[in-house]
């Protein structure tokens, strides 16, 4: 029974990893940029969301819509200011920019919200303390909400990429920028759309994370786990992100419950990275990633 409980919690945590990995994979698929700043972006969107909600007394849905708008604006700004000037440069340049962005956003968050470690209570839906009891199993409300939202978002993404014109354009862009451009896909617009979508997903993930534990300045570190998850799933595979996220969540929780007591704790923080190192060694393109054959 205990193991079942741990596995369920792992699935719920893993869904959040999968969600952040989804944002990561979307950016990678369209622009081939590995976004090391993903964790910081999650942190920034959720702090912005908190700021927007505590701005005034308007209904919660209005606050959420407004912060969604802010998040989309943030994504567009990142694309326009930092990514757009580097289109056509060797890939190392935009990737380095995201690495620098990691520091820049962290510094920004410390500057604005750094007092008392950036800790804030964040519970606009009033679900943080709630729990569902099913038999002997306890499911925390924010975690359960996160799980459901993640599944819905992945479903929407699947439909979007299959049927929407913009989604098809994104897939074409992912395949080859030049060919897509020749065939009439507005590649620059797709880049902007992908960044906006990624920050929006980051906001959703951040919202759930904030509802789980409140806000603090260490939230960005979840981005590192998300990178590991994205790599395990295969960098360009959307279902891979979900499956790897769930897998890593369960394994991490099991490791935390059964190995941690013997070594003195803390394994949960690095376990995804260890799994990633092992998987990357045997399957360099991840579990579901597309293997690229190189030509000279």
């Amino acid at each position: 029974m205990n193991t079942l409980q741990i596995c369920l919690w792992g699935l719920q945590i893993g869904a959040i990893y999968g969600l952040i990995a989804l944002a990561f994979v979307l950016v990678y698929k369209a622009t081939k940029v590995i976004n090391f700043a993903q964790g910081s972006i999650v942190m920034l969107t959720i702090y912005l969301c908190h700021a927007v909600i505590s701005l005034g007394t308007f209904p919660i849905w209005a606050g959420l819509l407004l912060s969604a708008g802010v998040a989309i604006g943030l994504g567009l700004a990142i694309n326009r200011l930092f990514m757009h000037p580097l289109v056509g440069q060797p890939l190392i340049a935009p990737v380095m920019v995201t690495i620098a962005l990691l520091g820049l956003i962290q510094g920004l968050c410390i500057m604005v919200w750094g007092d008392i470690g950036g800790c804030r209570n964040f519970d606009p839906l009033g679900i943080s303390a709630g729990a569902l009891h099913i038999g002997q199993i306890v499911l925390l409300k924010p975690h359960t909400l996160g799980f459901i939202v993640t599944l819905v978002l992945f479903g929407l993404c699947a439909l979007f990429f299959k049927y929407a014109k913009l989604g098809l354009g994104m897939r074409a862009t992912a395949e080859d920028h030049q060919v897509a451009k020749v065939l009439g896909v507005p590649v620059m617009f797709v880049f902007a759309a992908v960044w906006a979508l990624a920050t929006l997903i980051s906001l959703v993930a951040g919202f759930i994370l904030g509802s789980m534990n409140g806000l603090e300045l260490g939230i960005w570190q979840i981005g590192i786990k998300a990178i590991a998850v994205a790599i395990i799933g295969g960098l360009d595979s959307i279902p891979g992100a979900l499956i790897a996220g769930l897998m890593v969540g369960v394994l991490e929780q099991l490791a935390g419950a059964y190995i941690d007591p013997y070594i003195g704790g803390g394994l949960m923080d690095v376990f995804p990275l260890i799994i990633m190192c092992i998987i990357i060694y045997f399957r360099p393109y991840g579990l579901f990633g597309l293997e690229r054959i190189e030509r000279v």
Partner: peptide
């Protein structure tokens, strides 16, 4: 907040970008 602590990483990141 603590602008004094955050300005370091912020400017570092900005310069690199």
């Amino acid at each position: 907040g603590t602008a004094g602590f955050g300005i370091g990483p912020f400017t570092y990141g900005l310069i690199i970008i």
